[in-house]
C-alpha cells in the first residue's frame, strides 16, 4: 500500500531535485552579476515611483545613478535629505534642491467665477480646455475637473468648490500636477513662501474683474508697496519672485481684490 505513495513521492522529489540542480547550475554559469550599488542606491530613494526625476520609477533612477548618467539631486519627494545621502554615497558634491510644494494659482470658486457656457462634455480639464478654453468666462483659471488630482501620485489634490486644492502636508513636490494642468496655473513654490498670488489672469483689470470677482486686476498697488521689489506686475498680473521675497506680507495687506493671500505651508511630513 505504501509502495505507490513512496514512488509518487520519490518521483516528485527527483524531478524537483533535478530542476533545482539545473537551475543552480544555470545561474552559476549564465547568471549576470547585478550592480550591488543599484540595490543600495534604491534603498536610499523613497520608493514612491512618482517619476518626477524623469525615470520610470525609483528602480530606473537607481540604475541611472549607478551608471553615473543621472545627478543625485533629481528626487523631489526625497528633497534635500535624500539628495545629500545619494551624493554622499556616490562621492560627489551635493546640489541640494529646495523644498517645493505645488500651488494652484486660482481662487475662482463656484461663487465668483462666471460661466461662459454650460459644459457637458468629457469630465476632464484638457477636454474642456479644448472647447473655447473652458466653461468659465475667465480663460486662465482652474476648470475644476481634476486632471491634476488624477495625475497626483500621492492623492494630495482634491477639488473643492470648483477649484483644485493641494494638501501641502501630502505634496511630494514632484511637479506632475503642474505638467498635467492644461491651464498651467499650478506652479512649484518654495515651501517657506508666505505670500502667493491666487490668480493667473492676464486680461485687463476691468475684463478680469467681470469674469471673476477674485481676479488680479493689475493695479500695481502691491508692486509699489513691496519693500524689496520682489513683486512685479507683468501683463496685468502680479508675479512674486521668491528669490527676492522676504515674506513680509505687505502685498497681501494692500491687495484690493484679496487675490494675494498670506499662506502657511506646514513643514512637509515624512515623505516616503
Amino acid at each position: 500500500m505504501f509502495i505507490p505513495i513512496l514512488t509518487a513521492f520519490l518521483v516528485v522529489v527527483a524531478v524537483g531535485l533535478v530542476a533545482s540542480i539545473l537551475l543552480s547550475l544555470v545561474s552559476r554559469y549564465f547568471g549576470v552579476e547585478k550592480d550591488h550599488r543599484e540595490a543600495e542606491l534604491r534603498a536610499i530613494l523613497p520608493g514612491v515611483n512618482c517619476g518626477a526625476c524623469g525615470f520610470k520609477g525609483c528602480d530606473d533612477y537607481a540604475k541611472a545613478l549607478a551608471n553615473g548618467t543621472a545627478k543625485p539631486n533629481l528626487c523631489t519627494p526625497g528633497a534635500a535629505a535624500v539628495a545629500e545621502e545619494l551624493a554622499q554615497y556616490l562621492g560627489v558634491e551635493p546640489e541640494v534642491p529646495k523644498d517645493v510644494v505645488a500651488f494652484v494659482h486660482c481662487n475662482g470658486n463656484c461663487e465668483v467665477a462666471k460661466l461662459d457656457y454650460q459644459y457637458d462634455g468629457i469630465h476632464s480639464c484638457s477636454a474642456a480646455n479644448a472647447m473655447y478654453g473652458g466653461q468659465f468666462l475667465c480663460k486662465f483659471g482652474c476648470l475644476g475637473f481634476g486632471d491634476c488630482a488624477n495625475a497626483c501620485p500621492n492623492d494630495a489634490i482634491c477639488i473643492d468648490d470648483g477649484i483644485a486644492h493641494v494638501d501641502t502636508s501630502r505634496c511630494l513636490g514632484c511637479g506632475i500636477c503642474a505638467a498635467a494642468c492644461p491651464k498651467k496655473i499650478i506652479t512649484m513654490v518654495p515651501q517657506e513662501a508666505r505670500t502667493v498670488v491666487m490668480c493667473r489672469n492676464h486680461d485687463k483689470g476691468a475684463d478680469a474683474r467681470k469674469a471673476c470677482a477674485n481676479a488680479c486686476i493689475g493695479c500695481h498697488k502691491c508692486e509699489k508697496n513691496c519693500p524689496v521689489g520682489a513683486i512685479k506686475v507683468q501683463n496685468n498680473l502680479a508675479i512674486i519672485d521668491y528669490e527676492i521675497c522676504t515674506y513680509c506680507g505687505k502685498c497681501a495687506e494692500v491687495c484690493p481684490t484679496h487675490c494675494i493671500k498670506e499662506v502657511y505651508f506646514p513643514d512637509l511630513g515624512e515623505k516616503a
Binding site: 514512488t7 509518487a8 518521483v11 516528485v12 524531478v15 524537483g16 530542476a19 533545482s20 539545473l22 537551475l23 544555470v26 545561474s27 549564465f30 547568471g31 549576470v32
Partner: peptide, 28 residues
C-alpha cells in the same frame, strides 16, 4: 511507471523551473 496522476504537480514544477531558467539564460 504508470504515474499519470502526478502529471499536474510534476508539470507545474517543471514549468516553473523552466521559466526561471529561461530568464537567467536570456539575461546572459
Amino acid at each position: 511507471f504508470e504515474l499519470g496522476y502526478l502529471q499536474t504537480i510534476v508539470f507545474i514544477l517543471v514549468i516553473a523551473a523552466l521559466v526561471q531558467m529561461i530568464e537567467i539564460v536570456l539575461g546572459k
